[in-house]
């Protein structure tokens, strides 16, 4: 199996994530879709790293996992703040600001 097979799997995962983000209206599911996209990128990094026999890509993946965790923490905090103001997790309700 060449490294390109891994890239293809990663691209499919990324597209599923992007599709979920654009099509689903539930804020939590949209957030989960972004996580799927980030994991597709991590898969890509690790596959490339092993094909070059270098640790650089794998360490990049570790860094990105840590950053994604921080992002999720902040994201959930903002979802909770939003839910306290308006008990809904539907993206269609984000419409006070427009013009």
């Amino acid at each position: 199996m060449s490294v390109f097979h891994y890239y293809v799997v990663a691209a499919i995962l990324f597209s599923i994530g992007a599709g979920g983000f654009l099509l689903r209206r539930n804020l939590l599911v949209m957030f989960m879709s972004v996580e799927l996209m980030l994991n597709a990128a991590n898969l890509c990094l690790v596959a490339a790293s092993s094909s070059f026999d270098l640790a650089r890509g794998s360490s990049f993946a570790l860094v990105s996992i840590a950053v994604a965790a921080a992002e999720v923490g902040v994201g959930l905090a903002i979802i909770i703040a939003w839910f306290r103001l308006r008990p809904s997790v539907d993206a269609g309700d984000l419409q006070e600001l427009r013009g």
Binding site: F31, N42, L45, S49, F60, V74, G75
Partner: peptide, 27 residues
């Protein structure tokens, strides 16, 4: 809060694109 949430969602979406692009450039 709504502004923060929109920024977060779209920002995270853009970050995912960036990370995937960085991974492909590395590859």
């Amino acid at each position: 809060v709504e502004a923060g949430f929109k920024y977060l969602l779209l920002g995270a979406f853009a970050s995912a694109f960036m990370l995937f692009g960085a991974a492909l450039l590395y590859g």
